[in-house]
């Protein structure tokens, strides 16, 4: 932690000594927890070679990476691409001057933000996907995630456009640009810069939500995991490997978001999805 903290003054010699004792106790406690977990896994015979063999077998590795991770990433990427388009339309619609455009956009955004993705997924699956096999399940997941993330991103876009200093649009109107030109040439390009980190954070949410395809038997990482543990009866190692793959993909996305934030926005905090996405409970509302 940095030298100055809100919570603590610089420690004196007594406190330093006390913290040293706490550190040792905490270290022992953390090591004890880790050791206990490993010991339990060992006792329950989860660390045997047979249980982990599939994860060093090329065919299974290929299945996990190609049929699993790659399909999951494809689902997440296509959902986010469509969601960005939907988000721009709804977000700009919410800022419209015409009430008959503004209110429907508001209603759609509020509805899809509040409805659990799973309910949406089941409706789409039974309406569209059920007789189309695994591609039907795939697109049910993508469409459901598009609607949900599109509604969330609409709020991000609205907040991002409103974060552009008002002098920009005033100047644009002053040189005679039309409303659509002000939006397209002046506001959106500047707003996108502010929104990028929030959009990438939303990608993490979408990537995690692709796992919900489990409920409609969609392809992806979780489905491959299920196949493996049903065949090999090695539920614990499989859950660990699948989780590790998700975590790895998400950490890469988070690293990209941080880098984009540094490059385009600078040190000051950009828009937080959590603040934008909580139905007017947030400070951007």
């Amino acid at each position: 932690m940095s030298t100055a903290s809100v919570l603590f003054d610089a420690p004196g010699p007594k406190t330093v000594a006390r913290h040293r004792i706490y550190t040792v106790v905490a270290l022992v406690a953390v090591l004890a927890v880790v050791a206990f977990v490993v010991w339990r896994l060992y006792v329950e015979e989860q660390l045997t070679y047979e249980k982990w063999e599939v994860f060093v077998t090329p065919a299974y590795i290929q299945a996990l990476l190609v049929d699993g991770l790659l399909v999951t990433l494809q689902m997440a990427v296509s959902a986010i691409l469509f969601a960005v388009i939907l988000g721009v339309v709804l977000g700009v619609g919410k800022l419209s001057d015409h009430a008959w455009v503004r209110w429907p956009c508001w209603a759609v955004v509020e509805f899809f933000r509040a409805v659990p993705v799973l309910l949406l997924m089941i409706l789409i699956f039974f309406s569209y996907g059920i007789d189309r096999g695994s591609s039907g399940a795939y697109w049910s997941v993508v469409i459901a995630l598009t609607l949900y993330n599109g509604a969330v991103l609409a709020e991000v876009f609205r907040a991002g456009i409103q974060a552009v200093p008002s002098g920009q649009s005033e100047a644009a109107y002053a040189i005679g640009l039309r409303k659509s030109q002000v939006m397209n040439i002046v506001l959106l390009p500047q707003g996108v810069k502010i929104m990028l980190p929030a959009i990438i954070s939303q990608c993490v949410v979408a990537l995690k939500d692709t796992s919900l395809g489990y409920a409609v038997a969609a392809p992806g990482l979780t489905a491959v995991g299920k196949l493996i543990w049903n065949g090999e009866q090695n539920q614990v190692p499989t859950a660990m490997v699948v989780a590790a793959l998700y975590i790895g993909a998400n950490l890469v996305l988070t690293a990209i978001a941080t880098w984009v934030q540094m490059k385009f926005v600078g040190e000051k905090s950009g828009l937080e999805v959590s603040m934008v996405g909580n139905l007017d409970g947030g400070r951007n509302a």
Partner: peptide, 19 residues
């Protein structure tokens, strides 16, 4: 960074295997 579904799988499907 773990999907909630996997946390649930851990406690419902993998967990019972290790007690």
């Amino acid at each position: 960074n773990t999907p909630l579904l996997l946390v649930l799988i851990f406690f419902r499907i993998a967990g019972p295997k290790i007690g």
